[in-house]
Computed example of a mutant assay.
Amino acid sequence: MSSRPSPTAARTRTGVLLASVAALAAGALLPASAAAATPVADPHATAAVLDLDGAGRTPAVHGADGAYDTASIVKVDILAALLLQAQDAGRQLTDEERGHAEPMIKRSDNKAANALWRQIGQASGLEAANKRLGLTSTAGGPGLMWGLTRTTASDQVRLLRAVFDDAATTSSPSGATALNAQSRAYVRTLMGQVVPEQTWGVSAAGVAGAPNALKNGWLQRTTSGLWDINSVGQVTVKGHRYLVAVLSNGSASMSDGVALVERTARQAVA
């Protein structure tokens, strides 16, 4: 996967993503309409990085590790919660569940996310799963607004560890295990099959042709017209696998937010 798209791909990507933002009004997120007044940009970004092939398991955090709205990166967390519930019941995902999970991750389908958010028990179900996955600073969004889940960059690396780190042994106090090998492989596969127009973000920190897996989120706020742009995933640099989470808010445009996220990811991995 190339870390930088061609000009044609970039134009295609922008058009598709803006169309996706407009569709959020049909899902659980806030409508994507700009505020009447010209927004005053106040961009902020935080990155957390963990070298999976390094010695430690504590992520390096760049910036203030405060809480940000997730937008669509929460879809990875929703899928993890669904898989934990299926494991607890001793079953595989049904065809219907896979029919929601796959478009939810691959092309960020909001209707699919709505269905699975309800199925896992909304915020309470997400938070119960997160206790087992090792997350400590993530609060589910109110009601059906899964995209307003609040999280930190370091918590997103904890979630990525639960998916990508085979050495992780996170479990609940009751002894129930976290994601098994089959569940981890399923999430990894879907994150590696995101549609091309949504492969911006942390992939910019990887090298061309190396395997990457990611999930992005984007949301324009109705109150300010400013953008939340987030990206989480695994990239490969010089033979090392890095888990990278970049969260941002306050950008004047989506393109500004994407550029901020990609610049922050490259600097954090470097």
Rank of each mutant, 00 (worst) to 15 (best):
A86H: 02
G239T: 05
K106V: 13
T177R: 15
L260G: 07
Q156D: 15
S172I: 00
S3A: 13
A162R: 11
S33I: 08
S33F: 02
Q182F: 01
L93T: 01
V269E: 02
G192F: 11
S203M: 11
S183F: 07
V187N: 12
V61R: 06
E197Q: 10
L214M: 11
M145Q: 13
Y186V: 02
A139S: 14
D166C: 08
K75F: 09
G217T: 06
G54N: 03
D88R: 14
R91G: 12
D77A: 15
D42V: 07
T136W: 01
P5H: 08
K106N: 09
G239R: 03
A60T: 13
H44T: 12
V157I: 13
V49K: 03
Q119M: 12
E262L: 01
L30S: 12
V235T: 07
T169H: 15
H100V: 00
K106A: 10
P211S: 10
D88A: 14
R184P: 10
E97N: 08
W218D: 13
S137N: 14
V49W: 07
A176V: 08
A37Y: 00
N212W: 10
L214V: 04
A153R: 07
G125W: 09
A19W: 13
R221I: 05
T223I: 02
L190C: 06
F164W: 14
R13T: 13
A205G: 06
N130R: 06
N130P: 02
N114M: 15
S183L: 12
R161D: 11
A112S: 14
A19R: 14
A259P: 07
P196A: 15
S3L: 05
A34R: 13
W146E: 12
V187R: 06
A28C: 14
E102K: 01
A268Q: 02
G250P: 02
K215S: 10
S231M: 00
D69W: 01
L82A: 15
I105K: 01
A204R: 07
S231Y: 02
K75H: 11
V195S: 12
V207A: 11
A37H: 06
G125Y: 08
E197C: 04
P43A: 11
N230D: 11
R11C: 05
L79V: 10
L29C: 09
L179F: 14
L144R: 13
V235R: 07
S251I: 02
R263A: 12
A252S: 14
P43L: 04
P31M: 12
Q182W: 01
I73A: 01
A112Y: 00
A176F: 00
G233I: 00
A112W: 00
L243N: 09
N212P: 03
L160A: 11
Q119F: 03
N249I: 00
A205P: 04
S251W: 00
A71F: 00
P173T: 01
D51S: 08
A213H: 07
